[in-house]
Each structure stands twice: as structure tokens, then as C-alpha cells.
């Protein structure tokens, strides 16, 4: 119990002895949280694997109905945001308050770009009736797109389970999108705390934990992109 450490370390909570202990506990806690996040998304990937192996034609045609250029753009955007997030952490660790704030803002902005692109993708699918499961009712341009996609992927007909593909597409990207939104919110909060000068070279834990979370969101997308958009 080092009371002198408490004296000038307002960030140190009372049940910890040292800043290092507090940091290590926080980091372990965060990794455990990320582990549960992985398992959470893992369930979706298992469902994906099962139905992809059962209905390969639906998956190929469904994939051709997604615009891989938009997906690739979003991948690049998220990778870039991961970079700005890691730079925010670096700035916080080296005590550069201004750079920390700017990098956090850049990350939020890139996340925003991701969501805007996502919005356009969703809007189009809603428009032409590529809806999940029981609501799947393509019409107009959508029908033409299906004919085109079926021809491209060499499938002779409309796979019944396209609706399942879009069911999973919306759940997987939707749950991921929700995580992006939560990430934007948390980073905004961090930006505010940074503005108030709560972080220093001795204490930048919250920024680091937020960045860890953000990288995980990025990793999920790294897998979602080829699995959904790039199937031949």
C-alpha cells in the first residue's frame, strides 16, 4: 500500500496498489471482453459456414448481388481507421494531447465514412427488395440484378435460399455496424476526456482499451468482407 502513489495519482483507484497493477488488470479485462466478443461473432460465422456449405449456389449468386467495390472501399476505410486509432494511442502514450484528439477525431470520421457507405448499400437492397428471410421480395431492378448475378455465377435459376443469404448478410453486417456505432460513441467520449486533459504519459489506459475494441471491430470486418462479397 503505497500511499505516496495515491497522493499524486488521481487516476489510481483505491483498491489497487500501483498504476501498473491497475493497467494490467484493465488490459486483461479488456482481452477477456474481446474474447467474448469473438465468441459472440463466432456464432454468426458458424451459421454462415453451415448454410454456405448447404446452399453454395445461393451464396454465389448472393455474393454477386453485393457490390464488392463498396466492400473493398469500406475495408480500406476501416484499416485506415485502425491506423489512426493506433496513432491516437501512441500520441497519448507520449503525452501529445493535441495529436491524440486529432487522431481520435480522424478515427471517428473514418467510422462515419464506413457507415455512410453501408447506408447506401443497405438503401439499395431495401429499394429492390433484397430483404432477409420471409421479407425477401426482389422486384424491378432487383430482378434484373438477380438474372445478371445468376448468369455471372453460372447458376441456372434463382436459388431459393437467397433469402437466407440476405438474412445472414443483414444480421452479420448489422451487428458489426452496431459495434461501429458504439465505437464511434466511445471514441467521442475519449476525445472529450482527452480534451479535458485526463490522460498523461502515466495514464492513457482508456484510450488504449478503446483502441483495442476498435481493432477487434476491424478484424471482424476483415473476415466479413471476403466471406460476403467475394464468393465465386
Amino acid at each position: 500500500m503505497s500511499t505516496e502513489a495515491h497522493g499524486d495519482s488521481h487516476f489510481l483507484q483505491h483498491h489497487y496498489d500501483t498504476p501498473a497493477q491497475q493497467f494490467n488488470a484493465a488490459k486483461l479485462g479488456m482481452w477477456l471482453f474481446l474474447a467474448q466478443e469473438l465468441l459472440f461473432f463466432g456464432g454468426l460465422f458458424v451459421a454462415y459456414g453451415v448454410f454456405r456449405s448447404w446452399y453454395p449456389q445461393a451464396w454465389v449468386v448472393g455474393s454477386h448481388l453485393l457490390d464488392y467495390r463498396m466492400g473493398a472501399l469500406n475495408t480500406a476505410v476501416l484499416l485506415l481507421s485502425s491506423f489512426t486509432a493506433v496513432m491516437a494511442v501512441r500520441s497519448a502514450q507520449t503525452g501529445n494531447q493535441k495529436a491524440t484528439g486529432n487522431f481520435l477525431l480522424a478515427t471517428i470520421a473514418l467510422a462515419g465514412v464506413f457507415m455512410v457507405v453501408k447506408y447506401f448499400e443497405y438503401a439499395h437492397k431495401f429499394e429492390v427488395g433484397f430483404l432477409p428471410g420471409s421479407h425477401f421480395a426482389p422486384h424491378g431492378v432487383g430482378l434484373a440484378e438477380i438474372v445478371e448475378a445468376a448468369r455471372e455465377s453460372g447458376v441456372n435459376g434463382v436459388p431459393y435460399h437467397l433469402r437466407t443469404f440476405f438474412g445472414l448478410y443483414f444480421v452479420m453486417t448489422g451487428v458489426h455496424g452496431l459495434h461501429v456505432l458504439i465505437g464511434m460513441f466511445v471514441m467521442g467520449w475519449m476525445w472529450n476526456r482527452n480534451r479535458k486533459g485526463e490522460f498523461s504519459t502515466r495514464y492513457s489506459t482508456p484510450v488504449e482499451m478503446t483502441a483495442l475494441y476498435w481493432h477487434l471491430v476491424d478484424i471482424i470486418w476483415i473476415f466479413l468482407f471476403p466471406l460476403l462479397y467475394l464468393i465465386d
Partner: peptide, 24 residues
Amino acid sequence: VLATPVLAITLLLLATEKIVGIGI
């Protein structure tokens, strides 16, 4: 930590299935 999130995603899929009908 390792098992409960799978229950969470299961129930999420179940509720989504029930409300929207995603077909899983």
C-alpha cells in the same frame, strides 16, 4: 466468458428470426 456470448448470439438470432424471419 467463453460460452455465454454464444447464448447471446443464439438468442439474438432467435429474436430476429421471430420478429423478422431471417430463415436460419
